[in-house]
Structures are given as structure tokens and as C-alpha cells.
Amino acid sequence: MNLAGPFQDKPGVRIEALSLQRGSRRLFDDLSFTAPPGAYVELRGANGAGKTTLLRAIAGYMQPRQGRIVFENTDEPALSLHYLGHLNGLKGAASVRAHVRYWAGLLGGAAMLTDEVLEDVGLTRQAELPARVLSQGQGRRLALARLLIAPRPIWLLDEPAAALDADARRMLGQFVEAHCEAGGVALAAVHEPLGPTPAQSISLGAV
């Protein structure tokens, strides 16, 4: 395992009376919860309940109309979080290895750990292949490599297990578990349990 050592500064996320809307549609009102250091928090809800919007708001991609998102013990939230969305962020022409090396530079990680990370996500044999020939599940594995190459304390995962096979799901569960043991926070929107026991499970219901 190549997860960064304990996150010393104990970062956490606190959501205070948050209301979000998508376009003109209200998703939820007055949502509050705290994800303390080391917590794995599960977000559940039907399709369209606002899981993705909530994660994107926490990531800072959109400003909430009401309520606050507070990051504890982090100065620069954008530098301390990972966002794994529905889109894997891959370029078809670039090789698997080039992706990981690029993320190490972009997000702050050690490019020399590329081979270890590729082994962790099970893509060693595909390292030189261009990303366009990867299957959906392999593409997802490559996106997971981003979490490992650049150690960041807060993980925002939007249906991270989508397209993954049983082995890869187990692997993802282990990543999340190890991340939280190291003091990191993981917020995941899921439909099926991810593996580790969630510290809390937030249900988002349509208003």
C-alpha cells in the first residue's frame, strides 16, 4: 500500500445548514453534519437527490446559496481534497503511466511512486497503453490512482465503485479504510456499501 502517512493536521469537514439547488430545483434544505478526521461518511439517496451536487459544492465548484461548508484545520481546501466524479478525466491519447505522472505534478505527489501506484490499482500490465483502449472499469481504476499518487486528506467520491469488478471494489474499500485509518476523511456517494463501515450515513431525500 502506498498511502501517505498520517494526516497530522487532522482535517475535517463541517456542513452547516446547507441548502442546495440545481438550476431552479431545490434539492435539500438545512443539511448539517460533521465529518471528523478519520471518518468515512456515506451519502445515500435516490437518483437526483443531490449527492453529486453536494459533493461538487464541497469541492468548491459551486457556491451554496445558503449555509456554510467549513473545512477544519486546512488553509486551502482546494489543495487538500480529491474529487472523483462520474468523469474519469482521462485523455485517450496519453498513456496510463503519463496520466499518473501528470497528476503527480498537477496535484502534488511524487512521480517516482508511479509504478507502485499502478501496481496498487492493478494496471501495471497496461502502463504503456493509451487510455482510449482501457475498458470502463480499467479507466475507473486509473482514476483511483489519482487518490494514491497525490496524498490529500479529504476524499470526495461520487459513486466510486461504478464499473469496477469485484476485485477492484474490494481494493477500493481497502483504499478508503487505509485513508481513514491515516486520519483522512472520505465522503462517498454510494448505492451499494463500499466495504468499510461508515461512521455515519447521510440520507439525502428530495424536498
Partner: peptide, 22 residues
């Protein structure tokens, strides 16, 4: 447009350097 469609833009916004520099 390509970065927006494939999700790369989300990662650019989380970069170590300011987006202007990227």
C-alpha cells in the same frame, strides 16, 4: 471544451498552482 467534457477541468481546479498559471 475537451477538458470540460472528460472531467479534466475539475482536476485543474484542484491543482497546486492557481488556475491562471495552469
Amino acid at each position: 471544451q475537451a477538458d470540460l467534457e472528460d472531467g479534466s477541468l475539475d482536476q485543474l481546479l484542484l491543482s497546486q498552482s492557481p488556475l491562471e498559471l495552469i
